[in-house]
């Protein structure tokens, strides 16, 4: 048997069949044909791997989830309507590099505080100039996450515009790598209040508390926000 005949014979072998007779004799003498036999058997064996079909229900559900939960672009600014958008979120593994900003509706300049890996509690206050203002929390994540659990708790006569009477909101959202903007249209009915933002993904959870007060209560020198404190990251 020559090499051409040997390779034709190999082509007719089923996966896993050992060569016999003249083919075995040829393979015993020809390194190239032995190599060819191994390659051919490997392709046949891998080709015999059966792959289950996905259920149509799963595919539909997966598509639905993707378009419902993943925002294609981060929302640049909140609507002033009742339905505020939270395009991104919090994450599994924060770098704990977060920034919170208070955007003054009427003021040309913005006040902002950078928070970078602060872990010690601090007396942090957001001073509101107006009855209703937007508090922006920018969270930097080192990774993308599809389903972070986020919750907001409000205390002390604080409300989110459009969510009157709701002291707690929770939802599942996606997190993109880098900066994630969370915009909270805060309505303060009293002199002060508290916002607690929590996130959880897998085994990690994180939390930030923001104390909100009217300008006169907050004082001019008080720090503005409290850092994220990893709970069990």
């Amino acid at each position: 048997m020559n090499c051409i005949e040997a390779r034709q014979a190999i082509g007719h072998l089923d996966s896993g069949v050992r060569p016999e007779g003249p083919l075995a004799e040829h393979l015993g003498q020809c390194e190239l044909c032995r190599q060819h036999y191994g390659d051919a058997m490997l392709l046949k064996t891998l080709g015999s791997l059966k792959v289950p079909e996905p259920s149509p229900q799963f595919l539909e559900h997966a598509l639905q989830r993707a378009t419902d939960e993943a925002a294609p672009t981060p929302a640049p600014a909140p609507a002033r309507t009742a339905k505020w958008r939270i395009p991104a979120s919090l994450a599994a593994s924060f770098l704990i590099a977060a920034a919170a900003m208070l955007i003054w509706d009427q003021m040309p300049e913005q006040q902002a505080i950078e928070i970078v890996e602060q872990r010690t509690p601090a007396e942090n206050v957001v001073a509101l100039e107006a009855h209703r203002q937007e508090v922006r929390i920018v969270i930097h994540s080192n990774d993308e996450h599809a389903a972070a659990e986020v919750s907001i708790e409000l205390a002390g006569n604080l409300e989110l515009e459009g969510y009157a009477g709701q002291q707690r909101l929770a939802w599942t959202t996606s997190l993109k790598q880098g900066a994630n903007l969370l915009v909270l249209p805060v309505v303060l009915h009293n002199e002060s209040g508290e916002i607690r933002v929590r996130s959880q993904f897998g085994q990690a959870s994180h939390e930030v508390n923001v104390h909100v007060a009217r300008k006169s209560q907050a004082g001019r020198t008080a720090p503005l926000v409290e850092p994220f404190a990893p709970v069990n990251a």
Binding site: R65, A66, S174
Partner: peptide
Amino acid sequence: AEDLLQELLFKLFRQ
């Protein structure tokens, strides 16, 4: 495989 495909769809939609 289902988990991976779901993650893929999340990412593809964002991008």
